[in-house]
Measured scan of single mutants.
Amino acid sequence: KDKDLLKGLDQEQANEVIAVLQMHNIEANKIDSGKLGYSITVAEPDFTAAVYWIK
């Protein structure tokens, strides 16, 4: 199951987060929520590491 990592990002921010996570071998998903911006989700086992790397 995926957990929400970040919400309300613009496309550039979302792409930067995806890139950082991929560099650390964390699979992440970018979801277009329309006017609400983009959300990033990661698998539950990767959540703690993902939070660490996006600081």
Rank of each mutant, 00 (worst) to 15 (best):
D32G: 10
A50I: 03
G8C: 10
T48L: 14
A28W: 07
A43T: 05
K3P: 05
L36I: 06
I31F: 07
I40G: 01
V20F: 15
Q22D: 04
K1Y: 09
V42H: 02
L9I: 07
K1G: 11
G8Y: 09
K55F: 15
K35G: 11
T41E: 04
N25I: 04
H24Q: 06
V51E: 12
L5N: 02
V51D: 07
K1M: 11
N25M: 07
M23D: 05
N15R: 06
V51N: 09
G34M: 04
I18G: 00
N25W: 05
Y52L: 05
A19H: 10
G8A: 04
T48N: 13
G37I: 05
L9T: 01
K30I: 15
A28D: 03
Y52S: 06
K3I: 13
E12A: 12
V17H: 02
K1S: 09
A50N: 01
K55L: 14
L5P: 02
D32R: 07
E16Y: 15
L36Q: 11
Q13K: 10
G34K: 04
N15V: 06
Q11E: 15
D32L: 11
I26K: 01
D10N: 13
G37P: 02
L36C: 13
V51C: 13
H24D: 00
A14F: 03
Q22C: 11
Q22E: 08
Y38S: 01
I18W: 07
L9C: 09
A14S: 04
K7P: 02
V42S: 00
L21A: 00
H24S: 04
D4K: 11
D4W: 15
N29Q: 12
N15Y: 07
Q11W: 13
G34E: 04
F47S: 01
I26D: 01
I26P: 00
L36R: 10
P45A: 15
K35A: 13
E12K: 12
Q13A: 11
W53F: 07
M23T: 08
F47Q: 01
K55C: 15
A19L: 11
A49M: 12
D32M: 08
L5F: 07
E44A: 12
L6M: 11
G37S: 06
G34F: 04
Q22T: 06
K1L: 10
S39P: 00
E44P: 07
D2A: 12
I54N: 01
N29A: 08
A14E: 03
L21N: 02
D10L: 07
E16H: 14
I18T: 03
S39V: 12
E44I: 08
I54K: 00
I31Y: 07
Y52M: 11
A50M: 03
V20T: 08
I31M: 05
K30A: 11
D32W: 14
K1P: 11
S33H: 15
A49G: 05
K55W: 14
A50V: 03
I54S: 03
W53A: 10
N25Y: 06
K3Q: 06
K55Y: 14
I18F: 07
A19E: 07
K1C: 10
K7H: 14
M23E: 08
K3H: 06
D2N: 11
Q13Y: 09
S33Q: 15
Y38Q: 01
I31T: 06
M23G: 07
L9H: 01
E27F: 13
Y38E: 01
D46L: 08
D46Q: 06
L5G: 02
D32T: 05
D46A: 05
Y52H: 10
V17G: 01
I18S: 01
A28H: 05
A43I: 05
D10G: 07
Q11P: 09
N25G: 15
I54Y: 05
A19N: 09
A49F: 07
N25S: 08
E16R: 14
A50W: 02
I40K: 00
Q13W: 08
L21R: 00
P45K: 15
E27W: 13
G34S: 03
Y52K: 08
A14P: 01
